[in-house]
Computed example of a mutant assay.
Amino acid sequence: MTIDISLQEAQQIFFKVDSCLLTSSSSEVLIKRLLQASLNYFNTEAAWYTLTPHIPISSINFPTRVPKWLYAHSLFQTESIVQQLLNENPDGLHLLRQQKQLCILPTKYINRIDGIFMLPIYFEDKLVAVLNLGFKKDMLDWFQTMIPLLNQLATKVSLILSLLNKQDHLQYLAQRDPLTNLFNRRVMLDHIQNELTRCERYQASLAILFIDCDDFKKINDQYGHDCGDAVLQHLAYIFQKTLRRNDQAFRYAGDEFIITLPNQSMKDALAVSKRLKRAITKEPLIYQEQEVPVSISCGSATYIKDVTWSAEALLSQADQQLLLQKKVRVSTLTSSPLIPNPVCSTKQPSSVRHNQPLQF
């Protein structure tokens, strides 16, 4: 059974799709909405992306990692096969008659669809992805009618992607530390304050770790500042690799890092601290064929019920614990409470205390 559609009806469908895409707040949202809109508004049996190993995913602006949802709806294929299929059918319409066409078809769709419309997505004149729309034979006429509008959609998506990518890049620069790729101090303060609000509202718990690298100045003096940068990058890598999904690491300033541990206690913070130290020992930093001695000290603080907290006060408590750890140079995290009231404490974190310029 075929579905007839007038030009006016087709234009109405694409108007809805355009409206959905134009309100995208980021490149990732755009790519996700395009997939969802294809399933909602087009008569397609399936929709998925084709990516090649050479496609620069970061150009679609996923600066930290490619989202799991994209991997779940994508198929990787060699660039030559994808480009050959696009060149053979410039209108984008393909009936599954050849083995090479099956190579871009996920196994789960082999018996469900008879044809594919390939919608190429470009960024800065370079092919970065292809959206595939799978259809049954009885929908061939529908897709043939839609070819001009689908090709217009491909052009619009590429233009919107280019604009959003610039916006994403500016937001990335405002939120991320360029050396370690961790969130910066500005984001950290907002994040901790939001976590404290959550704790007050839902009677939840929160622990934070205030971390710095032991003898960082000696490392810079002995191995050079490039090695010092490598140490900070290595620590950031260890933190991200070791922490839970809900935990978050931030670069505070210089060689100082903050880690937030939602729904965790002081005992949990102690366990995380030990786990991080073990991970650093297990995976040493090799710089210019030399093993660089890297270790960390940790201070902690936890949210206490019925006390009015601020992000700065919680950081001050953790910083005092860090000073204690640095002083006695022990490898475990103390769990003894501190006397100063978190509201009244005026002690500043070490980067402010030593009047050092903040580094992001």
Rank of each mutant, 00 (worst) to 15 (best):
I339P: 01
S25C: 02
V343M: 08
Y202K: 12
I5L: 10
L96F: 01
I5G: 03
V157Y: 03
Y223L: 07
L127V: 12
V157M: 03
K68P: 01
R186V: 13
L35R: 08
G224N: 04
R251S: 12
S58P: 00
Y252N: 12
L182F: 08
G254V: 08
L209M: 11
P56L: 07
G228Y: 03
V17L: 13
K277C: 12
Y71E: 08
H54Q: 14
L75T: 11
R198T: 08
G299T: 06
Y303R: 08
W48V: 13
Q101R: 10
T260I: 15
Q8R: 04
L133G: 10
N263Q: 05
Q233V: 15
L131A: 09
H54D: 14
Y122Q: 10
I31F: 03
V231P: 02
M139Q: 13
K218E: 13
R275S: 13
T50S: 15
I192P: 06
N40C: 10
Q171F: 10
Q36N: 03
Y172S: 13
Q171H: 11
H94W: 09
H191C: 14
D255K: 14
V307H: 05
Q84K: 15
N263G: 05
N165A: 11
A207K: 02
C298K: 01
I160F: 11
D141P: 01
L35I: 04
N151D: 09
P67E: 11
T260R: 01
Q290I: 08
L206M: 07
E256G: 09
D114P: 00
S24P: 12
L149Q: 13
E291Q: 06
C103K: 14
T155N: 02
S336E: 12
S331W: 01
V272E: 00
D4L: 15
N341L: 04
Q359C: 11
H94P: 05
N355D: 07
N184L: 11
S158K: 04
Q356G: 01
R176N: 10
N184T: 11
K347C: 05
L323I: 06
V66S: 08
L232T: 11
Y223C: 07
D247V: 00
T64S: 12
S345D: 08
W48G: 10
T260K: 06
D215I: 02
L333D: 01
Q77R: 15
P178S: 11
I147S: 12
F14Y: 15
V187K: 07
N165T: 09
L315V: 14
V330G: 14
Q193I: 00
I113S: 05
A236D: 06
E195N: 08
K305F: 04
E289S: 15
Q11F: 13
Q359K: 04
S19V: 02
T332Y: 07
T281I: 11
S300H: 03
Q144I: 01
F210I: 02
D214K: 08
Q99C: 01
